[in-house]
Design a protein around this nucleic acid. Sequence first.
DNA 1: ATATTGCTTTGGAACGTTCCAGAGACATCC
DNA 2: GGATGTCTCTGGAACGTTCCAAAGCAATAT
Lengths: 350, 350
Amino acid sequence: MARIPGRSPTAPPTLADVAERAGVSRQTVSNAVNNPDLLRSDTLLRVQEAIEELGYLPNRAARNLRTRASHLVGLRINPVQEGTASAIMDRFVHSLVETSREAGKHVLLFAGDPLDPLAGYDDLLRSTAVDAFVVTDTYLGNPQATWLGARRAPFVAFGRPWDNPAASHPWVDVDGAAGCDLATTHLLDQGHERVAWIGWRKDSWIGEDRRSGWTRAMRERGLATTGLASRVEDTVASGRGASAVLLDEARPTAFVCASDTLAMGVLHTLAERGLVAGRDVAVVGFDDSQVAQVVPPGLTSVRQPLEQVAVEVVKALEGLLAHPPAVGPGVLLTPTLAVRGSSSAVGFGS
Amino acid sequence: MARIPGRSPTAPPTLADVAERAGVSRQTVSNAVNNPDLLRSDTLLRVQEAIEELGYLPNRAARNLRTRASHLVGLRINPVQEGTASAIMDRFVHSLVETSREAGKHVLLFAGDPLDPLAGYDDLLRSTAVDAFVVTDTYLGNPQATWLGARRAPFVAFGRPWDNPAASHPWVDVDGAAGCDLATTHLLDQGHERVAWIGWRKDSWIGEDRRSGWTRAMRERGLATTGLASRVEDTVASGRGASAVLLDEARPTAFVCASDTLAMGVLHTLAERGLVAGRDVAVVGFDDSQVAQVVPPGLTSVRQPLEQVAVEVVKALEGLLAHPPAVGPGVLLTPTLAVRGSSSAVGFGS
DNA sequence: ATATTGCTTTGGAACGTTCCAGAGACATCC
DNA sequence: GGATGTCTCTGGAACGTTCCAAAGCAATAT
């Protein structure tokens, strides 16, 4: 037996077990796992057989201790916002987990207090539980970025450093302006001329960015935007209120919204007034949430390429954790438009 | 300086650093952290001051190696199903993360291939990366349970062991029958008598459980159920098709659905026919998804108490990882009903 | 024949923590 | 006065891995 007497029979095999079985030293087994090129081919084969037979896998804790790396990436998640539509987080999380796996990393979740953007980071960092963080809520003007930067904590942001374009940390973001331009142009192509905007309050960088896409597309066709825009909170009720006012005062035939949540507010107004989305008034949302996908007659929505975002984030992480660390420029990805019944005359088909 | 020469100044402090500063041995510092009762109060104070001053936190890897525990819980997540409404996973994940934190644990995510229920578990287990798993997709008749059981891997299931009620692993589940009973009774109280059921195919344990709640509620009031039920795939299209047929053939005035996805299908049918949900036909879904919360006029839906589920799951985990392990009986929680416009005459109000 | 080189393999040390057995101080008991 | 016990603290060992320096060995160069 390769087992040391007294060892529990269910305890996983160690390097020493494999080494004994293969008739080599511990270090050779370690090399077989981490630097196979160093071994003579027949030795390698023998060791690999022993590994296979024993079902050996390196002990994570021991490896982490020695290499000072956990191969874990920390991701803070906030409570799900009830009553809103935009749940892109789970799609992103899945993509991130999947991509991280391919890079030999796992994702460690921790809870966040939405009011305290720094909570949770410190402990994980000081206890060396994670190698790096993925920071998502940069809409806050990311104090995390500066804080993490000061602590020399490696992190990649999903979201631009709006308040400091010269920030030196890696980031990946989606071009909201391009997305809204896409959405607006799509509506203009359908013949609409009075396309209204419902977005967020002026202090939201992301909101203003998205809004600029709408403005740009309208100006490009020489269309006026005055009186056609509204800035409100990101709630269904606000979207409903804003769309009601706009319909009364500016008579738009289409709406572009900064979020699916706001777009759902528009659908509420339409339903109240007996109007049919897609036939009487066109609506486009942002995020391509599950809501957009299933609400009748389907809500056209700007879709963020979260799978690509995850790929770029992981790529940046790998650069950051390499020796020496390599920080590339920020990456800006372009979203696509998922066209559904709310902005096309196809009605309730397929 | 407490630092060993050559040590990077950004490297976190270790037990030895704290010990030197406080003028005690390593072990005493360790005791100050883990068994404060063992120390004389003045020593404890002195050590705690040193810990505070240096910002010491135990190195996770070293601790994990020594104690053979990672304080990590593995959770497998599947890709987000596009085109469906029921995204309860992110709500559950958040609750689990939050509750785990209070228990001193973190959640490690890993990706799953929906077709291979075992993928991913094995590696994490053999590399001792996690202490235990939370298994969620028991609708598969959970082969994971038996597999993990055979490997002596600690795990708690969210979902009953349908195929083996005598299974000895801890589990937590939500009473789907009670939820659908609640939903149906709610509709009957509103004066409906012809309440239809749209559920899943017969091979789904969960589906049959939920259906039995509808049957029970109908029978209790002496109402017939024949011709009022349909069993289909869990897609919007199936829900639309089933509801169209039911409306034509059985003239129901209300629908109870096994999922919000199916309920959205019903809403599609109503929209096509110019019928108004909540006024002409009542609809109730299951899961209280974000879709249910924001779709006009609001979809009444059965809400799973996921926060409670998380609490019970973590409680079970703690029992499982205690010495000696303690396995309590399965826990069955009762859902609530979130009433909205689709099942009440309040219409498009608040 | 000896030195040099390159390839392969090895044993000891170290990562930072906790377990364990025991040391030292002091009080209590016979 | 010595045995016994209690409280507090300590140093060595161990967890399983990888780093490091060096050893063994064969082939080539001097």
